[in-house]
Simulated scan of single mutants.
Amino acid sequence: MQRKSFDSMPCPIARGLERVGEWWSILIMRDALRGTTRFDDFQTGLGIAPNMLSRRLATLVEAGLLEKRLYSEKPPRFEYLPTECGRDFRPVLQTLLAWGNRHFAPDGPGAVIVNTETGEVADPVLVDRRTGRPLSDPVFRTVRGEAARAARAKETP
């Protein structure tokens, strides 16, 4: 059964899922953003089959989240480094971590975000960069963007 592609949808969530919507991809990005760069280290840390890891890394490179760099010529070995796009995925992971701790950690958090200067545990919240207000504030809501409005206008005769 062939998977449906979300790439042509105007929804940014659907387009994002096209790049990272498979659980291995999200875990690879988690590890890459923590400093893992080499194939063997990803494989050992995740316990993922080599063929699956190869496919996921290739997909993340193609999607522009990771950059593949040669670090050894004999034999050829590559490292995988987060691109700017990949580094911009960090807040998504931090939000997922906070949500998972809040709702699916009956024995306590498996990981937390800490302030390295004070050692205090952070309580992540998404905020509007311009106002500093939490996006959970009722003044914020999601509305169709320009691309979605244009696509909808094409559908309506």
Results as ranks from 00 to 15, higher is better:
residue 14 A to H: 03
residue 16 G to W: 05
residue 16 G to I: 06
residue 18 E to G: 11
residue 18 E to N: 14
residue 20 V to D: 09
residue 24 W to Y: 12
residue 25 S to H: 15
residue 27 L to V: 10
residue 28 I to Y: 01
residue 29 M to V: 01
residue 29 M to E: 01
residue 30 R to H: 10
residue 30 R to G: 03
residue 30 R to A: 15
residue 30 R to I: 14
residue 31 D to H: 08
residue 33 L to C: 09
residue 34 R to A: 14
residue 36 T to A: 06
residue 38 R to S: 13
residue 38 R to M: 13
residue 39 F to I: 03
residue 40 D to C: 12
residue 40 D to Q: 14
residue 41 D to G: 00
residue 43 Q to C: 11
residue 44 T to D: 04
residue 44 T to P: 00
residue 45 G to Q: 14
residue 45 G to Y: 09
residue 45 G to S: 11
residue 49 A to H: 12
residue 49 A to L: 05
residue 49 A to I: 05
residue 49 A to T: 03
residue 51 N to S: 15
residue 52 M to W: 13
residue 53 L to N: 11
residue 55 R to W: 13
residue 55 R to L: 12
residue 56 R to C: 11
residue 56 R to T: 13
residue 57 L to V: 00
residue 58 A to G: 13
residue 58 A to P: 14
residue 60 L to I: 08
residue 66 L to R: 08
residue 67 E to N: 12
residue 67 E to Y: 07
residue 67 E to P: 04
residue 70 L to F: 02
residue 72 S to H: 12
residue 72 S to W: 09
residue 72 S to K: 04
residue 73 E to G: 01
residue 73 E to T: 12
residue 75 P to E: 05
residue 75 P to L: 06
residue 77 R to Q: 13
residue 77 R to S: 09
residue 78 F to L: 12
residue 78 F to T: 01
residue 78 F to D: 06
residue 80 Y to P: 05
residue 80 Y to D: 01
residue 80 Y to S: 02
residue 82 P to M: 10
residue 82 P to C: 02
residue 83 T to N: 09
residue 83 T to Y: 03
residue 84 E to P: 05
residue 91 P to I: 07
residue 92 V to N: 15
residue 92 V to Y: 04
residue 96 L to S: 15
residue 98 A to H: 07
residue 99 W to T: 15
residue 101 N to C: 05
residue 101 N to M: 12
residue 102 R to L: 14
residue 102 R to K: 15
residue 102 R to Q: 12
residue 103 H to R: 07
residue 103 H to V: 05
residue 104 F to M: 10
residue 105 A to V: 08
residue 107 D to A: 15
residue 109 P to K: 06
residue 109 P to H: 02
residue 110 G to N: 14
residue 112 V to W: 09
residue 113 I to A: 10
residue 114 V to C: 02
residue 115 N to P: 05
residue 117 E to P: 05
residue 119 G to F: 05
residue 119 G to K: 04
residue 122 A to I: 13
residue 123 D to L: 14
residue 126 L to D: 08
residue 127 V to W: 00
residue 127 V to Q: 02
residue 130 R to T: 15
residue 130 R to Q: 13
residue 134 P to Y: 01
residue 135 L to K: 08
residue 135 L to I: 09
residue 135 L to V: 11
residue 136 S to V: 05
residue 138 P to S: 04
residue 139 V to C: 02
residue 139 V to Q: 02
residue 139 V to W: 00
residue 140 F to E: 11
residue 140 F to G: 15
residue 143 V to C: 09
residue 144 R to A: 13
